[in-house]
Each structure stands twice: as structure tokens, then as C-alpha cells.
Nucleic acid binder design. Structure first.
Length: 666
DNA sequence: TACGTGGCGCTTTTT
DNA sequence: GCGCCACGTA
């Protein structure tokens, strides 16, 4: 019988107390020290939202709340990490028992612990968008739908549809009627595919991103004992960026908080920019209706930006009809420098302007990593990257293709996924298709054989024993055997080695040759794989490693391996990914109708409002200097050169708030 | 059945 | 200026 031994937390060190009144302004202080119960904090941009949440956590801890009883939901994992670091700096406590992270990562943790009540083993695989699309495609062909006969939506469109129904808690009918009316005639087949997809995920012991929310919520709703467990555990729930939650996330919070109702949500309706992911800023508007006893706090003092920038921000968001009216007021002194509006001839000249200005700023002593160039879509940045490279200006880009989503990373991860979850069909097929002579058809045949072997023989203890006898073509025979023995090596007797060792083995035995033969930029990819192995060293356990791989975001990427942390660099980022960040100087580029706001949003007033919020987010990233630039011409493949209209958002800003820069050519 | 080549269309944002 | 798909060949 094991002895139970409980470690007690050290009592809060005497003498170390936070002087909340001295460190927070009046509005922040009220929110931080509010009595338990539902709390809504409307926090304008740059008003110390993170600070308020951080101090609230510290306040709870100082008042004797056990860290294990706190749940902190944030928009990125990085945000949660930063807040906890700051709490640790404020208080001499070990807050490691506190659960913090994104909704998806928290769902993942809960499902790994208790998902067995829904019939999932704790070793389930997480499908990213590409995996999801692959699996839906196999389901579609398995459903006997002949794409040559009817125009059936492709896997990624179906993934969009299914995902939206989960995140907004609506039915497929409703969604199709509203967003895809032309697919309505196919509704029965689409529903059939959906049912098959759900069964397939269950059979392969895998979950897509949406399942991490949906299955978690279902688990709480259908299994009272699990719900009771987590309600007891999470006595205090804090939610950051509440304006970007969707229906299911709001439901998740409400379900967890159903008894104690100690839930603090913080957000800014003017910064809601994720409606395409089902986010609904009406969650924040309607919070007081769902919690009629909620205390409401408004934090409207802006500490970030100079008054000139703030005036532009206030003007930019003003035309939006749907919002909590609020007026941010500046605390900083004026610098007598108005934000610039700059017309350029074309994208190339815009890039030259930005690059040249950056060099001047550097000469003035502004560090490069205090400068950001923000844009609506990643492809807007191509000319700029060229120009920066040409001038030798180092830059860092939170790119569209994420490190962990690159083909070579996912290829190697497929091996690990498969040994970690031998029912992972997507991983199996991806892995075997790397071998010469094996394509879709053979992969499918092999998968059936593998499934049969799982049925007949149960858990795997020896990979090669089962795999080698399977029917493969003569051309693939040799590499097939090598694959089988590699699996033996990385997961002897079925038990996976540490992730980092697995990566090294897979690359050495199989993938290095594959990469040489298939990629023209072999060196780069090989280097990525080395970095992946280095990154993996912090994980002992394959599931932990794989979850991290799937759930880490671009903005989290500083934890990722592809950073050249030493060199100081200018930041290039989409506005979405810059949310929550701030810089000394911000350039917002491609401010033309069709680029920002994006062409797709131009017809729908609701979409325009969201674009305007996005514009507002971009402006409010700037502390001291802001440049709004727009090219007057765009070179466009296919359509020829096109004249560009300045963004309608620029016309909404009173001209006296901006300084018009006339750029000549030297 | 696997895989290379040529034509066409078209560009958002991400856990 | 690029990625996806369809087609044709080995």
C-alpha cells in the first residue's frame, strides 16, 4: 500500500505584500479586488487588461486561494505563460498547479484525463486542419460519392462547414441555408458524410480541434461526476479576450461556473476579430443578461499610446454601429507628432518607403524589434520581405506557414503519431505513402490489413512481426521492411522512446534519404528536423509532445525552435497575430479598398464592421509612431495593373488628425 | 497504380 | 508570380 503524503504550500512569506492601490489605477483596482461572483471587465486597448488579470490572480492567491483552484483561459498559450510568469514575480508562490492556456489546450488536458467516459483512450491523436481534410476526403470516397457525377464540396470546405456548426452550436441545415445555400440539395449526403466522419474519428481514436471543445463540453454535460470534479477544482475562472469566444466556449465557461459563478471575463468588444471562426462579440455584450448579478467594470485609461495615435484610433472605430460606446483617454503626454498618412505609387515604392524609414528610426535609436509592419493578409508582405532583405534589414515574420505544419515536420511526426496511437489512420497513411511505389490505393489496402491485425491480435508488442508479412509490391518490399524495423527501434515492444530519440532514429533510418530525393531545399529541411529534435527534448512523453505540436500557435512560436532569438529584428505580422502586442512604431500597409478592408468583406456591412475593428486593433498596437500607407497601383497577375482606391477607413479619419506625407523620388 | 507534366484559377484571418 | 487538379504515361 503506497503511503499518501501531502505537500503543504508554504504560507505567504511575511512582509511580501502587494500594494494594489499603489500599483493599479482606480478602475483596475476595483476589478482586481472585487468580491467573488460574476465579473465583466470591459477593457479598452492598452488599458492594462493583462495587468488587471495578472493582479487578480495574484490577489486570489494572496487571499489564500489554492492555485489548483484557478482556471485561466487565454487566447494563446504564450499569453497564459506570460501572465503566470508575472504572477510569480509578484508573489513568492509556486503557481504551477494553476491551469492556464487556450480553450483547446485545456480541453485537451481534460479529455486526456477523463475522456474515457466518452469512449476515447487517453492516447487520442489531435488532427490539425490538414489531417481533418484528409480524413474527410477518405470518408467522402468511402461514402460512394462520385465527384465526377455531382459537384460535391471538397474536404476543406466540409471541414469549414462542420467546424462552424460546432463553434456556433448550430445545425448543418441552418448553416448551409445561411452560408452555403447552393449545397442545400446535397444536405442528405453531407449529413451522411458528417456521421461517417464522426464514426471515423472515434474508430481512429482521434479528435479534431473542434472536438477538443465539443467533446469536453459533452463530457461535462453528460457525465455529472466529471462535471462535479471540475467544478470543485476550478473555483475561480478567469477569461481573457472574451470578445473572441464563440458560442461553445461561452457555454463551456457557463457550465463550469454553474455552481459557484466565480467567473471573471475580460475583453474589448471593439477588438473582436475572429467571427470567421465563430467568435461572437455578442457573448460579451450579453454577459450581463446571462449573469444579471454581474459586476461591471470599465477600464478606459490608455497607457500605451500617445494622444495623437489614440485620437486616430477613436476616430477609426467610431463609425461602427454595434459596440459598447467608449472613449479611450490618454495618460501619456503628447509628442507633437501626428500619425502619418502616406500615398505611394505601388507596392514596391511602399516597401522602399517602409525600409528607408526603418533605417532612419534605427539611427534615431529605436530598436528594430520595437518596430512592426502589420497587414491584412500574409501575401501583402512579399515585396516588403524582398526589400528588407535587399537592404540587409533583419526581420522576423509570423508567417502563414507555421513551422509545425510544414510537410517534412508532419511527415516525421506521422511515425510518432502512429506508434503513440496505432489506430491513427491519417498518420499511418501519411507514413506509408512516403515509401516508393505506395500511393493512395496501396496505402488503403495496407491500412485495412493493419486494422484487421489490430482486431485479431490486439495491442502491438512487435511492429515488424505484424507489418513485414503484409502484401506490398516488389518495388516497395525493401523499404517496407525497413519501415517496420524502424518502428521496432523507436517503440520497442510497443512502448515509444522519448520523442527526441524517435525523431533522430526516423530521420537517420528513413527520412533523410526521402528528403534528399524529394526536396530541392534539403539542407533547410534537414536543419528544421534537427531543431525539431532539439525542441522535442523537453518532452519525455510522446503524447505530450504531439499535443504541443498540434496546439502551439504562431504567436506561441517563441517556444518553438525556429527562432533566431539573438538577432534583433523588425516584426512582420498579420494584424490578427499582432493582437495583444505593442510596438514603439507601427506601419500599417496596403490600406486600400480590397486589401484592407479585404475584397470579400466589401458587400456585407457586418463584415466591414469586423474589418474596421481589425483596423482599430492595428492602430492601437502603436505606442509612439504610426504610419498608414497605401499604394495607388497594384500589379496583379491576370487582371493587369489596377488602380487602387485608398481604404474607406482612411477617409473616416478627420484629416487634421493625420499628417499627409508627400513622397518624392530621389 | 504511381507519379510527372501542363494548364487554369485565384489569393484572409487560425486553435 | 504559385499551388492545385486533371490528364497521360511507365
Amino acid at each position: 500500500m503506497a503511503r499518501q503524503y501531502i505537500l503543504q504550500r508554504a504560507p505567504a512569506a511575511a512582509g511580501i505584500h502587494i500594494d494594489y492601490a499603489a500599483e493599479l489605477n482606480e478602475q483596475q483596482l476595483a476589478a482586481v479586488t472585487a468580491s467573488p461572483g460574476p465579473l465583466l471587465v470591459i477593457a479598452g486597448a492598452g488599458s492594462g487588461k493583462t495587468r488587471t488579470l495578472t493582479y487578480r490572480v495574484a490577489y486570489l492567491l494572496e487571499n489564500g486561494v489554492d492555485p489548483r483552484n484557478i482556471l485561466l483561459l487565454t487566447f494563446t498559450n504564450k499569453a497564459s505563460r506570460q501572465m503566470l510568469d508575472r504572477v510569480a514575480n509578484l508573489l513568492p508562490v509556486d503557481a504551477s498547479g494553476l491551469w492556464g492556456g487556450t480553450f483547446h489546450s485545456i480541453g485537451n488536458r481534460m479529455l486526456r484525463r477523463h475522456g474515457t467516459v466518452l469512449g476515447y483512450s487517453s492516447s487520442f491523436t489531435i488532427l490539425d486542419r490538414e489531417d481533418q481534410k484528409d480524413l474527410i476526403d477518405t470518408v467522402v470516397s468511402g461514402a460512394g460519392i462520385n465527384p465526377k457525377e455531382i459537384r460535391f464540396p471538397k474536404g476543406d470546405v466540409l471541414a469549414d462547414i462542420f467546424s462552424f456548426t460546432v463553434n456556433t452550436e448550430r445545425t448543418i441545415e441552418e448553416l448551409l441555408a445561411e452560408k452555403f445555400p447552393y449545397f442545400l440539395p446535397l444536405i442528405e449526403q453531407i449529413k451522411d458524410v458528417h456521421a461517417r466522419y464522426e464514426r471515423k474519428k472515434k474508430a481512429t481514436n482521434s479528435m479534431d480541434f473542434d472536438d477538443l471543445l465539443e467533446k469536453t463540453l459533452r463530457m461535462l454535460k453528460e457525465h455529472g461526476e466529471v462535471a462535479a470534479f471540475y467544478r470543485r477544482q476550478f473555483q475561480f475562472i478567469l477569461v481573457d479576450e472574451y470578445q473572441d469566444t464563440n458560442k461553445i466556449q461561452a457555454d463551456f465557461i457557463d457550465t463550469l461556473a454553474a455552481e459557484h459563478r466565480n467567473v471573471m471575463v475580460v475583453g474589448d468588444d471593439a477588438q473582436s476579430i475572429y467571427s470567421w471562426r465563430g467568435a461572437n462579440f455578442k457573448n460579451i455584450l450579453a454577459f450581463p443578461e446571462r449573469y444579471p448579478d454581474a459586476q461591471i467594470f470599465k477600464i478606459e485609461l490608455n497607457y500605451r499610446s500617445v494622444p495623437e495615435i489614440l485620437a486616430v484610433a477613436n476616430a477609426a472605430i467610431a463609425p461602427n454601429v454595434q459596440q459598447f460606446r467608449k472613449q479611450l483617454s490618454a495618460t501619456r503626454d503628447t509628442k507633437e507628432l501626428k500619425p502619418a498618412i502616406v500615398a505611394l505609387r505601388d507596392g514596391g515604392e511602399q516597401a522602399q518607403f517602409v525600409a528607408q524609414r526603418i533605417l532612419e528610426l534605427r539611427d534615431e535609436g529605436i530598436e528594430l524589434d520595437e518596430i512592426a509592419i502589420l497587414y491584412r493578409a500574409h501575401y501583402h508582405a512579399v515585396e516588403l520581405q524582398l526589400e528588407l532583405s535587399r537592404r540587409g534589414i533583419p526581420y522576423q515574420i509570423t508567417s502563414g506557414v507555421r513551422f509545425f505544419e510544414q510537410a517534412h515536420i508532419k511527415d516525421v511526426a506521422a511515425f510518432i503519431r502512429f506508434v503513440a496511437n496505432s489506430r491513427d489512420e491519417v498518420a499511418f497513411k501519411r507514413m506509408v505513402k512516403l515509401l516508393p511505389g505506395i500511393g493512395n490505393k496501396s496505402a488503403d489496402t495496407l491500412w485495412r490489413a493493419w486494422e484487421a491485425s489490430l482486431h485479431a491480435n490486439g495491442e502491438v508488442t512487435n511492429w515488424s512481426e505484424r507489418l513485414v508479412p503484409m502484401p506490398v509490391g516488389a518495388r516497395s518490399k525493401k523499404s517496407w521492411e525497413q519501415l517496420a524495423y524502424t518502428l521496432d527501434e523507436i517503440a520497442p515492444r510497443g512502448a515509444a522512446n522519448p520523442p527526441s530519440e524517435m525523431i533522430i532514429s526516423i530521420v537517420a533510418a528513413i527520412y533523410d534519404d526521402y528528403a534528399k530525393a524529394n526536396f530541392s531545399n534539403y539542407d533547410l529541411r534537414r536543419e528544421d528536423l534537427n531543431q525539431l529534435a532539439a525542441f522535442a527534448r523537453q518532452f519525455k512523453d510522446a503524447h505530450e509532445f504531439l499535443s504541443q505540436l498540434a496546439l502551439i500557435s504562431n504567436v506561441d512560436a517563441e517556444a518553438a525552435p525556429n527562432q533566431n532569438a539573438e538577432t534583433e529584428a523588425v516584426n512582420l505580422s498579420s494584424v490578427h497575430q499582432a493582437k495583444g502586442l505593442e510596438y514603439h512604431t507601427v506601419f500599417v500597409i496596403w490600406l486600400t479598398d480590397g486589401m484592407f478592408p479585404s475584397a470579400r468583406s466589401l458587400e456585407a456591412p457586418e463584415a466591414i464592421e469586423e474589418e474596421r475593428r481589425l483596423f482599430y486593433v492595428a492602430i492601437t498596437r502603436a505606442r509612439d509612431e504610426l504610419y498608414l500607407t497605401y499604394p495607388q497601383m497594384r500589379f496583379n497577375a491576370g487582371y493587369g495593373d489596377m488602380f487602387q482606391r485608398p481604404s474607406r477607413f482612411l477617409k473616416e479619419i478627420p484629416t487634421q488628425l493625420l499628417e499627409d506625407w508627400q513622397v518624392g523620388r530621389g
